[in-house]
Protein backbone atom coordinates (compact mmCIF):
# COMPACT_ATOMS: atom_id res chain seq x y z
CA UNK A 1 0.00 0.00 0.00
CA UNK A 2 1.41 3.35 -1.03
CA UNK A 3 0.64 5.07 2.26
CA UNK A 4 2.87 2.69 4.13
CA UNK A 5 6.06 3.74 2.37
CA UNK A 6 8.52 5.94 4.23
CA UNK A 7 8.48 8.57 1.54
CA UNK A 8 4.73 8.92 1.75
CA UNK A 9 4.80 9.08 5.53
CA UNK A 10 7.25 11.95 5.48
CA UNK A 11 5.12 13.70 2.90
CA UNK A 12 2.08 13.10 5.03
CA UNK A 13 3.57 14.76 8.08
CA UNK A 14 4.46 17.87 6.11
CA UNK A 15 1.18 17.87 4.29
CA UNK A 16 -0.88 17.68 7.47
CA UNK A 17 1.21 20.38 9.11
CA UNK A 18 0.87 22.70 6.10
CA UNK A 19 -2.87 22.26 5.79
CA UNK A 20 -3.45 22.77 9.50
CA UNK A 21 -1.42 25.97 9.31
CA UNK A 22 -3.54 27.18 6.40
CA UNK A 23 -6.70 26.29 8.25
CA UNK A 24 -5.58 28.26 11.27
CA UNK A 25 -4.82 31.27 9.09
CA UNK A 26 -8.31 31.11 7.70
CA UNK A 27 -10.10 30.89 10.99
CA UNK A 28 -8.27 33.77 12.68
CA UNK A 29 -10.42 36.62 11.34
CA UNK A 30 -13.63 34.94 12.40
CA UNK A 31 -12.22 34.40 15.86
CA UNK A 32 -11.40 38.08 15.94
CA UNK A 33 -14.98 38.96 14.99
CA UNK A 34 -16.21 36.60 17.67
CA UNK A 35 -13.90 38.15 20.26
CA UNK A 36 -15.11 41.63 19.35
CA UNK A 37 -18.72 40.54 19.69
CA UNK A 38 -18.07 39.45 23.27
CA UNK A 39 -16.11 42.56 24.25
CA UNK A 40 -17.23 45.82 25.74
CA UNK A 41 -18.10 48.61 23.36
CA UNK A 42 -15.33 50.83 24.69
CA UNK A 43 -12.67 48.22 24.04
CA UNK A 44 -14.05 47.44 20.59
CA UNK A 45 -14.23 51.07 19.52
CA UNK A 46 -10.66 51.50 20.68
CA UNK A 47 -9.60 48.54 18.55
CA UNK A 48 -8.01 46.86 21.55
CA UNK A 49 -9.52 43.44 20.89
CA UNK A 50 -7.35 40.77 19.35
CA UNK A 51 -8.36 37.13 19.50
CA UNK A 52 -9.75 37.17 23.00
CA UNK A 53 -12.61 39.33 24.37
CA UNK A 54 -11.66 42.35 26.45
CA UNK A 55 -13.99 43.44 29.25
CA UNK A 56 -16.21 40.44 28.51
CA UNK A 57 -19.82 41.31 27.77
CA UNK A 58 -22.85 39.66 26.19
CA UNK A 59 -24.57 43.00 25.67
CA UNK A 60 -24.20 42.73 21.89
CA UNK A 61 -25.99 39.40 21.78
CA UNK A 62 -28.76 40.66 23.99
CA UNK A 63 -29.32 43.58 21.64
CA UNK A 64 -29.19 41.33 18.62
CA UNK A 65 -31.57 38.79 20.05
CA UNK A 66 -34.12 41.43 20.92
CA UNK A 67 -34.02 42.96 17.47
CA UNK A 68 -37.12 41.61 15.69
CA UNK A 69 -35.99 42.95 12.31
CA UNK A 70 -32.75 41.02 12.56
CA UNK A 71 -34.46 37.82 13.56
CA UNK A 72 -37.05 38.14 10.84
CA UNK A 73 -34.33 38.76 8.28
CA UNK A 74 -32.76 35.41 9.14
CA UNK A 75 -36.08 33.75 8.45
CA UNK A 76 -36.41 35.51 5.09
CA UNK A 77 -32.88 34.42 4.23
CA UNK A 78 -33.59 30.81 5.12
CA UNK A 79 -36.75 30.93 3.03
CA UNK A 80 -35.05 32.47 0.03
CA UNK A 81 -32.12 30.09 0.31
CA UNK A 82 -34.26 26.99 0.48
CA UNK A 83 -36.74 27.97 -2.22
CA UNK A 84 -34.16 29.66 -4.43
CA UNK A 85 -31.79 26.71 -4.24
CA UNK A 86 -34.57 24.26 -4.98
CA UNK A 87 -35.58 26.17 -8.11
CA UNK A 88 -32.00 26.61 -9.27
CA UNK A 89 -31.21 23.00 -8.65
CA UNK A 90 -34.19 21.82 -10.63
CA UNK A 91 -33.54 24.11 -13.58
CA UNK A 92 -29.83 23.36 -13.59
CA UNK A 93 -30.29 19.64 -13.41
CA UNK A 94 -32.83 19.69 -16.20
CA UNK A 95 -30.84 21.96 -18.49
CA UNK A 96 -27.46 20.36 -17.96
CA UNK A 97 -28.51 16.95 -19.20
CA UNK A 98 -29.41 17.81 -22.80
CA UNK A 99 -26.41 20.13 -22.98
CA UNK A 100 -24.13 17.26 -22.05
CA UNK A 101 -25.09 15.45 -25.25
CA UNK A 102 -22.89 15.66 -28.31
CA UNK A 103 -24.04 17.90 -31.13
CA UNK A 104 -24.45 14.75 -33.21
CA UNK A 105 -26.97 13.39 -30.75
CA UNK A 106 -28.78 16.60 -29.91
CA UNK A 107 -28.66 19.04 -32.77
CA UNK A 108 -28.84 22.56 -31.41
CA UNK A 109 -27.10 22.00 -28.11
CA UNK A 110 -24.22 24.28 -29.11
CA UNK A 111 -26.60 27.15 -29.82
CA UNK A 112 -28.19 26.64 -26.44
CA UNK A 113 -24.89 26.59 -24.61
CA UNK A 114 -23.75 29.80 -26.28
CA UNK A 115 -27.04 31.37 -25.28
CA UNK A 116 -26.18 30.52 -21.70
CA UNK A 117 -22.62 31.83 -21.91
CA UNK A 118 -23.62 34.99 -23.71
CA UNK A 119 -26.16 35.79 -21.01
CA UNK A 120 -23.44 35.41 -18.42
CA UNK A 121 -21.04 37.80 -20.10
CA UNK A 122 -23.34 40.54 -21.34
CA UNK A 123 -25.77 42.39 -19.19
CA UNK A 124 -28.12 45.18 -20.02
CA UNK A 125 -27.60 46.86 -16.71
CA UNK A 126 -29.77 47.98 -13.93
CA UNK A 127 -32.29 50.24 -15.63
CA UNK A 128 -33.81 47.81 -18.16
CA UNK A 129 -33.60 45.06 -15.60
CA UNK A 130 -35.58 47.14 -13.17
CA UNK A 131 -38.19 47.90 -15.80
CA UNK A 132 -38.64 44.20 -16.52
CA UNK A 133 -38.93 43.43 -12.82
CA UNK A 134 -41.46 46.17 -12.44
CA UNK A 135 -43.55 45.09 -15.45
CA UNK A 136 -43.61 41.55 -14.07
CA UNK A 137 -44.98 42.93 -10.83
CA UNK A 138 -42.10 41.60 -8.82
CA UNK A 139 -41.25 44.83 -7.02
CA UNK A 140 -41.67 44.39 -3.28
CA UNK A 141 -42.41 40.69 -3.72
CA UNK A 142 -40.52 37.83 -2.14
CA UNK A 143 -40.13 36.24 -5.57
CA UNK A 144 -37.83 38.98 -6.74
CA UNK A 145 -35.23 37.37 -4.51
CA UNK A 146 -35.52 33.95 -6.12
CA UNK A 147 -36.61 34.19 -9.73
CA UNK A 148 -34.20 36.56 -11.51
CA UNK A 149 -31.12 34.64 -10.43
CA UNK A 150 -32.66 31.20 -10.83
CA UNK A 151 -30.70 30.24 -13.91
CA UNK A 152 -27.00 30.44 -13.34
CA UNK A 153 -24.85 29.69 -16.34
CA UNK A 154 -21.84 28.79 -14.28
CA UNK A 155 -23.75 26.11 -12.42
CA UNK A 156 -25.39 24.75 -15.57
CA UNK A 157 -22.05 24.35 -17.29
CA UNK A 158 -20.48 22.85 -14.21
CA UNK A 159 -23.28 20.32 -13.91
CA UNK A 160 -23.06 19.57 -17.61
CA UNK A 161 -19.37 18.78 -17.28
CA UNK A 162 -20.05 16.47 -14.37
CA UNK A 163 -22.66 14.67 -16.48
CA UNK A 164 -20.14 14.19 -19.24
CA UNK A 165 -17.99 12.22 -16.83
CA UNK A 166 -20.70 9.60 -16.47
CA UNK A 167 -19.97 6.61 -18.72
CA UNK A 168 -22.13 6.48 -21.82
CA UNK A 169 -22.78 2.77 -21.30
CA UNK A 170 -25.04 3.49 -18.33
CA UNK A 171 -27.28 5.71 -20.34
CA UNK A 172 -27.35 3.34 -23.29
CA UNK A 173 -28.36 0.54 -20.98
CA UNK A 174 -31.25 2.63 -19.75
CA UNK A 175 -32.35 3.44 -23.27
CA UNK A 176 -32.19 -0.25 -24.10
CA UNK A 177 -34.62 -0.87 -21.31
CA UNK A 178 -36.95 1.53 -23.02
CA UNK A 179 -36.50 4.46 -20.67
CA UNK A 180 -36.94 7.94 -22.14
CA UNK A 181 -34.66 10.87 -21.43
CA UNK A 182 -36.73 12.08 -18.47
CA UNK A 183 -36.75 8.72 -16.78
CA UNK A 184 -33.07 8.18 -17.48
CA UNK A 185 -32.28 11.54 -15.99
CA UNK A 186 -34.22 11.09 -12.79
CA UNK A 187 -33.70 7.41 -12.12
CA UNK A 188 -30.18 6.92 -13.38
CA UNK A 189 -28.34 10.26 -13.36
CA UNK A 190 -29.83 11.68 -10.19
CA UNK A 191 -28.57 9.06 -7.72
CA UNK A 192 -25.04 8.94 -9.11
CA UNK A 193 -24.64 12.72 -9.35
CA UNK A 194 -24.81 13.39 -5.65
CA UNK A 195 -21.32 14.93 -5.28
CA UNK A 196 -21.98 17.37 -8.09
CA UNK A 197 -25.49 18.10 -6.87
CA UNK A 198 -24.04 18.79 -3.44
CA UNK A 199 -21.60 21.20 -5.05
CA UNK A 200 -24.28 23.01 -7.00
CA UNK A 201 -26.50 23.12 -3.92
CA UNK A 202 -23.73 24.63 -1.88
CA UNK A 203 -22.88 27.30 -4.46
CA UNK A 204 -26.47 28.20 -4.91
CA UNK A 205 -27.06 28.38 -1.17
CA UNK A 206 -24.05 30.55 -0.59
CA UNK A 207 -25.11 32.81 -3.42
CA UNK A 208 -28.58 33.26 -1.95
CA UNK A 209 -27.30 33.68 1.54
CA UNK A 210 -24.85 36.40 0.53
CA UNK A 211 -26.95 38.38 -1.96
CA UNK A 212 -27.96 41.77 -0.69
CA UNK A 213 -28.31 44.14 -3.62
CA UNK A 214 -31.62 42.77 -4.90
CA UNK A 215 -33.24 43.04 -1.48
CA UNK A 216 -32.09 46.60 -1.06
CA UNK A 217 -33.38 47.81 -4.38
CA UNK A 218 -36.49 45.77 -5.07
CA UNK A 219 -37.98 45.48 -1.62
CA UNK A 220 -39.51 48.62 -0.20
CA UNK A 221 -39.81 47.70 3.40
CA UNK A 222 -36.74 46.96 5.48
CA UNK A 223 -38.86 44.62 7.59
CA UNK A 224 -38.82 42.21 4.65
CA UNK A 225 -35.08 42.32 4.05
CA UNK A 226 -33.09 39.11 3.93
CA UNK A 227 -30.18 38.90 6.32
CA UNK A 228 -27.46 39.88 3.86
CA UNK A 229 -29.28 43.08 2.96
CA UNK A 230 -29.88 43.82 6.60
CA UNK A 231 -26.20 43.32 7.38
CA UNK A 232 -25.20 45.50 4.48
CA UNK A 233 -27.22 48.38 5.87
CA UNK A 234 -25.51 47.88 9.20
CA UNK A 235 -21.92 47.26 8.20
CA UNK A 236 -21.39 49.84 5.55
CA UNK A 237 -19.82 53.04 6.73
CA UNK A 238 -22.04 56.01 6.30
CA UNK A 239 -20.73 59.12 4.70
CA UNK A 240 -20.80 61.45 7.68
CA UNK A 241 -19.50 64.49 5.91
CA UNK A 242 -22.90 65.65 4.78
CA UNK A 243 -25.12 64.16 7.42
CA UNK A 244 -26.48 66.18 10.25
CA UNK A 245 -24.74 63.88 12.66
CA UNK A 246 -25.10 64.08 16.40
CA UNK A 247 -23.58 61.93 19.13
CA UNK A 248 -26.88 60.11 19.51
CA UNK A 249 -26.85 59.05 15.90
CA UNK A 250 -23.18 58.22 15.81
CA UNK A 251 -23.74 55.96 18.77
CA UNK A 252 -26.41 54.11 16.83
CA UNK A 253 -24.30 53.85 13.71
CA UNK A 254 -21.09 52.69 15.35
CA UNK A 255 -22.26 49.65 17.23
CA UNK A 256 -19.04 47.75 16.66
CA UNK A 257 -19.83 44.87 18.98
CA UNK A 258 -23.41 44.47 17.79
CA UNK A 259 -22.22 44.41 14.19
CA UNK A 260 -19.70 41.72 15.10
CA UNK A 261 -22.38 39.64 16.78
CA UNK A 262 -24.65 40.00 13.77
CA UNK A 263 -21.90 39.07 11.35
CA UNK A 264 -21.16 36.00 13.38
CA UNK A 265 -24.76 34.91 13.77
CA UNK A 266 -25.30 35.67 10.09
CA UNK A 267 -22.50 33.34 9.01
CA UNK A 268 -23.46 30.57 11.41
CA UNK A 269 -26.35 28.86 9.55
CA UNK A 270 -24.43 28.40 6.33
CA UNK A 271 -21.47 27.07 8.32
CA UNK A 272 -23.67 24.56 10.07
CA UNK A 273 -25.09 23.31 6.79
CA UNK A 274 -21.70 22.73 5.22
CA UNK A 275 -20.69 19.57 7.10
CA UNK A 276 -23.99 17.98 6.10
CA UNK A 277 -23.27 18.56 2.45
CA UNK A 278 -19.70 17.49 2.92
CA UNK A 279 -20.55 13.86 3.34
CA UNK A 280 -21.59 13.75 -0.30
CA UNK A 281 -18.04 14.50 -1.29
CA UNK A 282 -16.83 11.29 0.31
CA UNK A 283 -14.80 9.09 -1.92
CA UNK A 284 -16.32 5.97 -3.39
CA UNK A 285 -19.81 7.28 -3.08
CA UNK A 286 -20.28 7.67 -6.77
CA UNK A 287 -19.53 5.38 -9.62
CA UNK A 288 -18.11 2.70 -7.41
CA UNK A 289 -21.42 2.12 -5.75
CA UNK A 290 -23.29 2.12 -9.02
CA UNK A 291 -21.45 -0.91 -10.26
CA UNK A 292 -23.17 -3.15 -7.79
Amino acid sequence: MYYKTTGYRIFNVFNVALLILLAVMCVVPLIHVLAVSFSSKAAADANLVGLWPIQFSVEAYKKTMFNPVFLHSIWISVLRTVIGTAITLFLTFLAAYPLSKEESVFKGRTIYSWLFVFSMVFTGGLVPFYIVIQKLGLIDSFWVLVLPGAVNTFLVILMMNFFRGIPKELEEAAFMDGAGPFRTLFTMYLPISMPSIATITLFSMVFHWNSWFDGLLYLNNSNQFPLATFLQTVIIQQDMSSMSASPKEMELISQTTVKAAQIFIGAAPILIVYPFLQKFFVKGMTLGSVKE
Partner: peptide, 17 residues
Protein backbone atom coordinates in the same frame (compact mmCIF):
# COMPACT_ATOMS: atom_id res chain seq x y z
CA UNK B 1 -35.83 20.25 -20.62
CA UNK B 2 -34.18 23.47 -21.74
CA UNK B 3 -37.37 25.43 -22.11
CA UNK B 4 -37.76 26.61 -18.48
CA UNK B 5 -34.19 27.88 -18.35
CA UNK B 6 -34.64 29.64 -21.66
CA UNK B 7 -37.71 31.45 -20.43
CA UNK B 8 -35.77 32.69 -17.44
CA UNK B 9 -32.87 33.79 -19.60
CA UNK B 10 -35.16 35.58 -21.99
CA UNK B 11 -36.94 37.47 -19.24
CA UNK B 12 -34.11 38.36 -16.96
CA UNK B 13 -31.18 38.46 -19.32
CA UNK B 14 -32.00 38.95 -22.98
CA UNK B 15 -34.91 41.32 -22.59
CA UNK B 16 -32.90 43.74 -20.43
CA UNK B 17 -29.95 43.52 -22.82
Amino acid sequence: MLLPSMIFLLLFSYLPM
